[in-house]
């Protein structure tokens, strides 16, 4: 796997305020990476540095081995910058075609590419409209479409589903899933459930510090974790789960949600036994997932 992005000891100050503090990380090609953190954590600043909208105060950043803003990256990197809007004086078609031409497409290719990316976000019918006639959600999808022009190898999406209705948010998630593999994504979002479904690695930024780089997949080791969400539970549920063979620790997050830690060597069919036990005691489950939820991994 090749390195897409490499950041070494990255610092960014706005006046006296340090927004990014000695950030170092690497992202490999083919991954979908989540960038999470509270408001003001520095996510958009980091995105802006990667896209060359901002310069770091110190430290090194390379994208595909090039400095951000290098002409070698044009067409290779797409982005949905936060709050960026298209020019209201031109139609969507005119602007997307212009972007395609800037990336080296000829007139006919640019027309085809414009239609292709709009089709990706299911907005072919607005091709001749001006941005001012679109709803917030539609504008965001058009902005995502522009990020896909030329099938870039890396796409940075800053809050791609914020403000979208559930159906459109879902179609954006599906789009990302479909394109992953040939395209690597870095997605900044507050929606942890969404990131959990999409991403294979997570960067957590908090107060400018990169405090965690979590790999979503559970490591292949004897100690395993399951997250169990029940429809209903009783006071004896915790005790019942504790008695399961191989169980090393049960944690009750809330009334219906449990984190089960077990030893795979002692109970190879732990998950099957768990479901059988729940059924025998009349406990219905809503969800059983391997590992911790992203929320648990990051904030517990």
């Amino acid at each position: 796997m090749s390195t897409l992005i490499s950041c070494q000891q990255l610092n960014k100050y706005f006046g006296n305020k340090q927004v990014l503090k000695d950030i170092s990380f690497e992202i490999q090609a083919g991954e979908i990476t989540a960038l999470v953190g509270p408001n003001g954590a520095g996510k958009t600043t980091l995105f802006s540095i990667l896209c060359n909208y901002l310069y770091p105060t110190s430290g090194n950043v390379t994208v595909f081995g090039e400095k951000p803003g290098s002409s070698q990256l044009f067409g290779k990197v797409g982005a949905l910058p936060q709050d960026a809007q298209l020019d209201p004086n031109f139609t969507i078609k005119t602007q997307l075609e212009m972007y395609a031409k800037l990336q080296g497409f000829n007139n006919q290719q640019a027309k085809n590419e414009c239609l292709r990316v709009l089709e990706c976000v299911d907005l072919l019918d607005v091709v001749n409209q001006r941005p001012s006639t679109l709803s917030h959600g539609m504008s965001k999808r058009v902005s995502i479409a522009q990020a896909l022009i030329g099938t870039p190898k890396l796409v940075l999406l800053d809050e791609p589903t914020a403000g979208l209705d559930p159906a459109n948010a879902r179609s954006i998630r599906q789009l990302v899933m479909n394109l992953s593999g040939e395209t690597s994504f870095i997605i900044s979002s507050h929606n942890l459930d969404e990131l959990e479904r999409l991403c294979s690695s997570v960067l957590l930024l908090d107060h400018g510090e990169l405090s965690q780089q979590v790999i979503g997949k559970q490591a292949q080791q004897s100690q395993q974790t399951l997250t169990l969400l029940l429809e209903n539970s009783t006071t004896s549920t915790l005790a019942l789960l504790s008695e399961l063979q191989g169980m090393t620790k049960v944690e009750n997050i809330n009334k219906q949600e449990f984190i089960l830690k077990y030893n795979l060597l002692l109970a190879a069919d732990f998950d099957i036994k768990l479901i059988q036990t729940l059924q025998q005691h009349g406990l219905e489950y809503r969800q059983i997932s391997k590992g911790l939820s992203l929320e648990q991994q990051l904030f517990s």
Partner: peptide, 18 residues
Amino acid sequence: ASDIKRGTVRFLLLRSTR
């Protein structure tokens, strides 16, 4: 000026130098 204020310049700078 308007492109900078609106953020349109960010779309352009993904494809061209300043």
